[in-house]
C-alpha cells in the first residue's frame, strides 16, 4: 500500500514544534543540543506559555539558541545566565523564566552565579547540557571532562592530579535548600528523550508553585569534540559519562533521593 495515502492530517502523529523558527540549527550533526532545543520548544508549546516565557541564552554552543525558538530571549554574558534569570524573574514574577546553559557556562565561569541563584531558591528553571567539553570554541577541557579524556587543552588526557576530577555541580546544588527539583537526564535514546521531556514539563509547571529552583542536567554527546560519530559518541557516553554522571532524579519535592 502506497505510503502516500497515509500522509493525511488526521494520521499525523509527530512533527517539529511550530515554535521552532525556519533557521536551521547551528549544532553539529547528531548533537544533543538540537534535541534539547526542540524539546524545550515542544514543552513550551504544549504548556501554552509561549507568550509568558523568557529564555536566557548562554555563551557556548547554544549561544544563538534565541534564533531557533520563537519566544522572548535575553543573551547573557558567559556564566551569568542564572544572575540574569534571577533579575528577570524578580521583576516579572508571573512569567516563566529559564536558562539554557552548557557545562563551561554553568560549572566553570558561572559557578558562583549558579550556586547563589540555587541557594536563594529563585523560581526559575535551569537547563544544563553537560557534554564534558567546550564545544563552541573547538573542544577544550571543561570542568566535567572525564579523567583520561583527551581534549585540545588536555591532549594527553585529563590528569586529575593537575586539573582535578570532573565536577558534579548538580549534586552540589541539590543539597542547597533553595533547589526543589533536581534531575539528571539524557536525550540519546527514545526512552531517554521521553523522560527528559517529562522532566522539562514538570520543571516549567513547578515555576507556578514558587517552590524554588528546578534544575535539569542533560548529559549529552559532543561528536566533533569527542571526535566520534554520533552513534559511537552516545555509546561512549553510556559507558563512560553515565558512570560519573548517573542518570535519574536527585531531588524531588525538595527532598534528596540519592
Amino acid at each position: 500500500m502506497e505510503s502516500t495515502d497515509i500522509i493525511k492530517p488526521e494520521n499525523l502523529v509527530y512533527k517539529r514544534s511550530r515554535l521552532m523558527t525556519e533557521q536551521p540549527l547551528s549544532y553539529c550533526p547528531g548533537c544533543g543540543h538540537g534535541t534539547v532545543t526542540n524539546l524545550i520548544a515542544e514543552v513550551i508549546e504544549e504548556l501554552g506559555i509561549e507568550s509568558e516565557v523568557i529564555g536566557i541564552a548562554p555563551v557556548g554552543c547554544a549561544v544563538t539558541v534565541y534564533d531557533f525558538i520563537a519566544i522572548d530571549w535575553i543573551g547573557a554574558a558567559h556564566g551569568r545566565a542564572t544572575a540574569v534569570a534571577t533579575a528577570v524573574k524578580r521583576v516579572l514574577p508571573d512569567r516563566y523564566v529559564f536558562t539554557y546553559q552548557g557545562d563551561g557556562d554553568l560549572a566553570a565561569i558561572g559557578t558562583a552565579e549558579t550556586i547563589h541563584a540555587c541557594n536563594r531558591g529563585e523560581n526559575i528553571t535551569i537547563i544544563f547540557v553537560n557534554n564534558g567539553i567546550y564545544g563552541m570554541t573547538g573542544g577544550q577541557m571543561a570542568p566535567t571532562t572525564l579523567e583520561g579524556m583527551k581534549t585540545s587543552t588536555c591532549p594527553y588526557g585529563r590528569d586529575v592530579n593537575m586539573q582535578g576530577p570532573p565536577i558534579d555541580i548538580t549534586r552540589m546544588i541539590a543539597v542547597l535548600s533553595g533547589t526543589y527539583y533536581v534531575t539528571r537526564q539524557a536525550v540519546h535514546t527514545p526512552a531517554a528523550v521521553r523522560k527528559t521531556k517529562k522532566a522539562l514539563l514538570k520543571a516549567f509547571e513547578l515555576q507556578k508553585t514558587n517552590k524554588g529552583v528546578s534544575f535539569i542536567e542533560i548529559v549529552s554527546n559532543c561528536n566533533s569534540g569527542w571526535k566520534m560519530s554520533p552513534v559511537d559518541a552516545n555509546r561512549w557516553m553510556e559507558e563512560k559519562m553515565f558512570k560519573i554522571y548517573p542518570l535519574g532524579d536527585i531531588k524531588v519535592d525538595g527532598k534528596m533521593l540519592v
Binding site: 494520521n11 512533527k15 517539529r16 514544534s17 526542540n38 540519546h188 521521553r194
Partner: peptide
C-alpha cells in the same frame, strides 16, 4: 524524537 534537527514527520 531522537532527531536533533526534527526533520522527520510521522504519520
Amino acid at each position: 524524537i531522537v532527531c536533533p534537527d526534527r526533520v522527520l514527520t510521522i504519520y
